Computed example of a mutant assay.
Amino acid sequence: MISAATLAVLAIGLVAGVLGAILGLGGGVVVVPALEFVLPHFGRDISIAQAVAISQIGVLAVGLSGAASYLRQGLVRARTGYLLSPYTIVGGAAGSFLGLVLPARVVATVFAALLLYSAYNLLRGLKRVDAEREPSRLVPPAMTFAGVMSGLLGIGGGTVQVPVLNLMAGVPIRQAIATSTFIMGLTAVGNALVYQAGGLLDLPLAGAVALGVLIGARAGAGLQSRIPAAQLKLFFSLLLIFTALQLLWKYWVHL
């Protein structure tokens, strides 16, 4: 018989998959805090490191499912993805090792700071018209940093990758989201292997998250094309701010 905790995790994965595919997030900004905040109500307490490990499987699922849909729609910049993915894979492995040793408060604080900074960048560019332009030289190191954050925080790297691709590489927001989804699937494989080797990956919960994410991602990829670009940026930013405030409250105020 399926437990209530497993059903809750499945629901978390479903919501994460929809939002992840729509916004190019990988779903980690939903999965990590939701696992920490929801599971205790069902008698399961997990650490943020365990939540990050489980989220890596969700990121892999949304990357595979969402990218397949975006490839069919012709939105993925495949050449850009293949050129930048080595930076995120190396960064992801480094970030995953950090996630095994850093204190939970440090991980949560870095997570919150990253989310707030990404939201600021997107809100600043909200009225900017998407247009092709020459990529900045800072794109490779920024994508490596995205990989580190994906491994450390289980977020897929989309919170950094989407703003980098859109604001620094000149990729229109829809294609930036699609390409980010493509890259995050490649990065999540190595990240998940590191956490599995570290003994933090709960496979039954990860499987439930992945199933929900796979179902939600297919729906989210279809909805993305119907939402105006400005609304995508605004909704993305508000979600990041809300999640950051939740984490700061838990680890600095409500101890």
Rank of each mutant, 00 (worst) to 15 (best):
L7G: 06
V9M: 11
L10A: 12
A16T: 05
A16P: 05
A16E: 09
V18E: 01
V18Y: 00
A21R: 02
A21K: 04
I22K: 02
L25W: 09
G26D: 12
G26V: 11
G26T: 10
G28T: 00
G28H: 01
V29D: 07
L35E: 01
L39S: 09
L39H: 06
L39A: 06
P40N: 03
F42Y: 13
G43D: 05
D45N: 15
I46D: 00
S47R: 02
I48S: 05
A49T: 09
V52T: 14
S55M: 03
I57T: 14
G58E: 05
V62T: 15
S65G: 07
S65A: 15
G66M: 13
A67L: 05
A68H: 14
A68E: 05
L71F: 03
R72H: 13
G74I: 08
G74W: 07
G74D: 12
V76W: 06
R77P: 02
G81Q: 11
Y82T: 07
L84H: 08
L84P: 08
S85F: 10
T88H: 03
I89L: 12
G91F: 11
A94K: 02
L100P: 05
L102K: 03
A104T: 12
V106R: 04
V106G: 04
A108M: 02
L115E: 08
S118V: 10
S118P: 12
A119D: 12
Y120G: 10
L122E: 15
L122Q: 15
L122H: 08
L126S: 14
K127Y: 11
R133F: 15
R133T: 09
P135S: 02
S136H: 04
V139C: 14
A142T: 09
T144Q: 01
A146E: 04
L153H: 01
I155P: 03
I155M: 14
V160N: 06
V160W: 07
V160H: 06
P163F: 06
V164F: 11
L167T: 09
A169T: 06
I177A: 12
G185P: 04
G185C: 03
L186M: 15
T187N: 14
A188K: 10
A188Q: 07
V189I: 15
A192P: 00
Y195K: 03
Q196L: 10
L201R: 08
D202T: 02
A208H: 08
A208E: 10
A210M: 14
V213W: 08
G216F: 09
R218F: 00
A219E: 03
A219F: 11
G220S: 04
A221V: 10
A221D: 09
G222V: 01
S225Y: 02
R226W: 07
P228A: 11
A229D: 15
K233L: 09
L234F: 12
F235D: 02
S237F: 03
L239Y: 08
L240A: 13
I241T: 14
I241D: 11
F242I: 13
L247E: 05
W249Q: 11
V253A: 13
H254M: 00
